[in-house]
């Protein structure tokens, strides 16, 4: 009897692991093993030609602390996150509320808001590059004909380059987040808002007391995505500014790419990647454990 049960137990156990195996193999091959290799590599020098990688201990990390460019891109990334996350989430909510109402041309509006998401980021960046071009670019043409401003070199001035990149990112992301909010809005029972309206609540109160709290799970999901994206989206930087002028618009991931695949300093590149990994895991943990408590799931 006992042996029978243990055989059965073992078979279940094997069965379970077999079911998990395909997913695990991929997860390990493409996520965990590379992450661990990166951490190991971050303690070694970059192998070049016949020179093998040497164990350096913490030297790469000491270099990181002294690296002015690293601190600059980290600061840029913080500013980039602050500039893109609240703005694109707020815009997404506003757009979703708007196109959720019954009105003429709703389908067209939804499509218009979602279009930037469908376009490839590289193509988008090329379009914006010409918007931003001083002299004959769209923005300069508008500001000079409407307000008589002189031409502004948006991407070529360290004071404006990063903000110009932020605008493109917000424009690109807001439509994507809007789709999630739209789905969330449609899942909210109409009876709740109707009841509130009978009680005489204003639209403002309805939004803050009913709609917004009920959309919290979406907000959690969207904000995690927005945070990840603020560290992940760098494609447009290649086209718009190439990180310049003097690293004014460079972000952490862009700097990692430059270090590892332009300068071929894979050792130091690994060290920078560890920092990115740490930052992202800290933020993911923070969001799930702290933010999660204030989210109402149905």
């Amino acid at each position: 009897m006992t042996s029978h049960r243990s055989v059965r137990f073992r078979r279940d156990w094997i069965h379970g692991w077999l079911l998990l195996l395909p997913a695990m193999v991929f997860l390990f091959a493409f996520t965990h093993i590379p992450a661990i290799t990166t951490i190991i590599n971050s303690f070694y020098s970059t192998p070049r030609g016949r020179r093998e990688a040497k164990f350096l201990g913490l030297t790469n990390y000491e270099r990181l602390l002294d690296d002015a460019v690293f601190w600059k891109v980290l600061g840029n990334n913080l500013w980039f996150a602050l500039g893109t996350i609240p703005m694109s989430v707020a815009l997404a909510i506003v757009m979703a509320l708007w196109v959720n109402d019954k009105m003429a041309g709703r389908g067209f509006l939804r499509m218009a808001f979602f279009t930037p998401t469908v376009l490839p980021l590289i193509a988008v960046a090329n379009i914006w590059l010409f918007f931003y071009t001083p002299g004959f670019g769209l923005i300069d043409q508008l500001t000079s004909s409407l307000f008589g401003w002189s031409s502004v070199n948006w991407l070529g001035d360290p004071a404006t380059a990063l903000n110009a990149v932020i605008v493109v990112t917000v424009w690109k992301e807001a439509g994507f987040f809007m789709i999630f909010y739209l789905a969330a809005l449609q899942a909210i029972p109409v009876t709740l808002t109707e009841a509130a309206r009978i009680e005489g609540a204003s639209r403002w109160t309805i939004f803050w007391r009913i709609t917004f709290p009920l959309m919290m799970p979406t907000t959690l999901f969207v904000s995690i995505n927005a945070v990840i994206n603020s560290f992940r989206l760098v494609d447009h930087i290649f086209i718009l500014t190439d990180g310049g002028p003097d690293n004014a618009s460079s972000l952490l991931l862009f700097y990692i790419y430059e270090t590892a695949f332009r300068f071929w300093e894979t050792g130091y590149g690994a060290t920078l990647t560890v920092v990115l990994l740490l930052l992202l895991s800290l933020m993911a943990i923070g969001q799930f454990f702290l933010f999660d408590r204030r989210v109402h799931y149905k």
């Binding site: 590059l129 010409f130 071009t133 001083p134 002299g135 004959f136 670019g137 031409s151 070199n153 991407l155 070529g156 001035d157 310049g244 002028p245």
Partner: peptide, 19 residues
């Protein structure tokens, strides 16, 4: 010459446009 960083890609275009 225009101030700031001048874009490579837009340079021929600026020349054609008489900028």
């Amino acid at each position: 010459m225009a101030p700031g960083i001048i874009e490579w890609g837009a340079t021929p275009k600026a020349f054609f446009e008489g900028q």
